[in-house]
Every structure is written in structure tokens, then in C-alpha cells.
Amino acid sequence: MTRVNAELLKTVEASGEFNAVACMNCGTCTALCPLGLTNLPREIFRDVVLGLEEKVLANVETVFSCLLCRMCQVNCPAEVKIADNVRTLRVHLNKTLHHL
């Protein structure tokens, strides 16, 4: 059981553009990822939207291993700016977790 928390998304949005709400969970991104990342981007984005912070923190490696190759982004039917969102998440994690 996880308590939803709207504050996380607000904090992330303070680090840059984050348009994950348009995601409709179709899975195109997962299917196309050359790294075979399964929980990025849609699951982590959803964790951010719902405020499941511990889930996000359990996936820092995934967030930083994304190649930003944009294969997912140009093919996203909901026009989610996936790679830009990943970068925003990195900014957020660098600030809050890495204190950089």
C-alpha cells in the first residue's frame, strides 16, 4: 500500500518540463527501448505523477542509464516528451538526492 502524494510532481516540475500526464500507458516506449528498460519511462513517470517517491528512488540507476536516444520520444503516440522528461528527472535527482 502506498499513499499518493501530489507534492512530488510539483517538485519535479520545478526542475523543468515534465509532461507525463499525457501518457496513456500503451507501452510503445518499452517495446522500442534499445536498452530494454522495462520500468522506464512509463512506470517511473507514473510513480512521479502519483508521488510514489520510494519507487522513484529505487530506480535512480534506470533514470541515469537512459541513452536519451529518443527512439521512444519520436514514436510516442501521446506526444510525451519522454527524453526531456528523463532529463528533468535527472535534474531533480541531482538536486534532491545527489545534492549537486
Binding site: P34, L35, E61, L67, L68, C69, M71
Partner: peptide, 16 residues
């Protein structure tokens, strides 16, 4: 539709 070379992961995740 090009496939990534993997390079951007090089500095943090060489094995990936």
C-alpha cells in the same frame, strides 16, 4: 528509426 550505439551510457554504465 536508427538504433542507438549505446555510447551515451558509456561513462556511467560501461557494461550496458
Amino acid at each position: 528509426a536508427t538504433h542507438c550505439c549505446g555510447g551515451p551510457a558509456e561513462s556511467l554504465y560501461p557494461h550496458k
